[in-house]
Design a binder for these strands. Structure first.
Lengths: 348, 348
DNA sequence: GCACACATTGATCCCGGTGTCAATCAAGCT
DNA sequence: AGCTTGATTGACACCGGGATCAATGTGTGC
């Protein structure tokens, strides 16, 4: 009677005077157990604080009760948000979550991910961009019979779960805001051409400008890669052009902040001499001065929903098995980087 | 012959014409296998790309091959750094890492952590502050036979692994730097009184000031709780005193940035009218303007070391079993928040 | 009171590994 | 050659659950 040793289903069965199968039925809420039996078993379970072994259950059911969140750039703020959102849902549901960072630029990353998922018999994965945008990966994940949800990825035609953001409204608000402030020369720091969401946002931005009878000349478009450094470089390029923008919209907060830092280094006052808007509402956005006007993606809520759907699917919930597509509208967040009207433009 | 089905040790044994125990010996590099046998088994393993089942192994060995990193505040930048540092080590070693956030202010958090560790049969945990500073927790973790490493926690007398930072030198450099810039009125935003590391840093700071024949009056000490908001509040209080400091040292970057934002909102120029120094070298520190002077704790390297030691312990590595204590010196990082000398003080 | 149908229960095997210990084998010795 | 000895090898039980299906119980109708 080693008190430290956890007891097994056999111990419980012996103590309750029943077979282990009956105990198994009780812990799994299976039907067909009489009230008398149930009470007998349950009291032993309660008294000794018995919990079934995950390892044994995993072996018997050929499942791991492990989910994973796969992402590329650990520095992106949405990764952390998604991680904690998913954790909140997974743990109470009896699943654990494994963080799996990867380098999606490398050639053999897909192989590596597949190996990871199949070695650990991961029950389901949440894919974050840019990983979520690879059709090759999802095809192979499906092949090995693993459930998955795409998060923050707009494209793809398949019928898997997909939870994404619908930038149209928020981008429209941003452009209207620029109009209200009187900006005529508006610059864009766009995201990588490979990124579907960056392309989408670029399109929305261009069309919102068009709605306001503005066009987007080539020298007002800088191509960034969503990093702080690239934000700085793009800002330098935009501000160095012969007709520099008075307002800049960046594909994400990280680049927006890079642009602001570069502009400040160059001696420009924000927002008096340059207006900047980001996209993400990362933690830094509200922890700087002037605070960054941006759009909140509601990543945490989306991740919670993704985890719920994924778990339902892993548990064989029929209703949840069909792929869902949820589009969430980002919320425009107005802060101080857009606090003053544009400088009067001199006539050319 | 379902090609999708992973093969088991029995399949390998059959294909190689040996017993499963021999296969087991091969995959575990056990001695006492003749070259002939080894080659026979290995070729089958290679041909079919066999990998043993983690679940089965976990059940047989009564281990999970799971490590966990337990922390309180997901927003603290060192958590992310520690997480990715540990991940880098865990995965190649065949361990997976589970992130376990908790609310350490709650009464039953220790119980909850113990339940988590014992339910999952976690092989070892990395404890981050403030969780790493609880002797009750480590006592109970030890009771259930789980390995652990304390990270970034200075105190405690026990013989467990402990990897911490030695603030003395860096704090000394910060104070010297203040002296060089000519500051006489120096304020401190200290960390919570419960935090051993905050107390330690406070002590170091006070003694470094004393070395320079300066004392730290009560109205130059603000008590913060390491959050951005608290940094703002403390700065407001310090700057509102009848003899406001011209330089502020904050217990961490988060509060330093809060102080800077508050000061800027109040119209002060940083660093011309107020010098601020933080501690952590969080990502934001270098992504703002002016960039924050601070001290880099080398969290990632410490986490890697912690994971290595923990894994050695879990693997029963005798040499690593004895507790080690590693103290790492933070590196002073000079940036722009301390770029100009103090304003000349008017005589009182 | 008895036969039958149906609901509950449990004996046994399986999941895929590891540990124990006896059986086998080759080499060294008299 | 025959025996001892130490090194390999393998048969079998075990880890702690779940699934199958036979055995037992319970209730219904006649």
């Amino acid at each position: 009677m080693d008190p430290a040793k956890k007891l097994s289903i056999n111990d419980v069965a012996r103590l309750a005077g029943v077979s282990k199968k009956t105990v198994s039925r009780v812990i799994n809420n299976e039907p067909g157990v009489t009230a008398k039996m149930l009470k007998k078993v349950q009291s032993v379970i309660d008294e000794y604080n018995y919990t079934p072994s995950r390892q044994a259950r995993a072996l018997a059911l050929n499942r791991s009760f492990l989910l994973s969140i796969i992402h590329d750039n650990p520095n992106a703020s949405f990764v952390t948000e998604a991680l904690y959102g998913a954790l909140d849902i997974c743990r109470p549901a009896g699943y654990e979550l494994i963080v799996h960072p990867c380098d999606f630029k490398k050639q053999d990353t897909v192989d590596e991910i597949i190996r990871f998922v199949s070695n650990l018999k991961i029950d389901g994965v949440i894919l974050l961009p840019p990983v979520s945008e690879s059709d090759e990966l999802t095809k192979r994940i499906r092949e090995i019979g693993c459930n998955f949800v795409r998060l923050l990825s707009t494209a793809s035609e398949d019928d898997a779960h997909m939870i994404y953001h619908n930038d149209g409204a928020a981008v429209g608000q941003i452009v209207s805001h620029f109009m209200d402030l009187g900006h005529q020369e508006i610059g864009l720091i766009r995201g990588p051409e490979k990124s579907q969401s960056a392309n989408q946002r670029y399109k929305e931005f261009r069309s919102a400008l068009a709605t306001n009878s503005l066009n987007l000349p080539k020298n007002h478009i800088a191509l960034g890669d969503n990093t702080f450094r690239s934000g700085m470089e793009c800002a330098e390029w935009l501000l160095g052009s012969n007709r520099p923008p008075t307002a800049i919209f960046a594909n994400n907060d990280e680049m927006a902040i890079g642009a602001i830092v570069k502009a400040q280094k160059m001696g420009l006052k924000i927002p008096a001499e340059l207006t900047v808007v980001g996209f993400d509402d990362s933690p830094q956005a509200s922890r700087m001065w002037p605070a960054l006007t941006t759009a909140n993606l509601h990543v945490r809520e989306m991740a919670e929903l993704a985890a719920q759907k994924l778990i339902a699917q892993c548990n064989g919930d029929i209703e949840a098995a069909a792929g869902i597509r949820v589009a969430v509208d980002p919320t425009f967040v107005r802060r101080q980087t857009t606090d003053v009207p544009a400088l009067p433009t001199e006539k050319t």
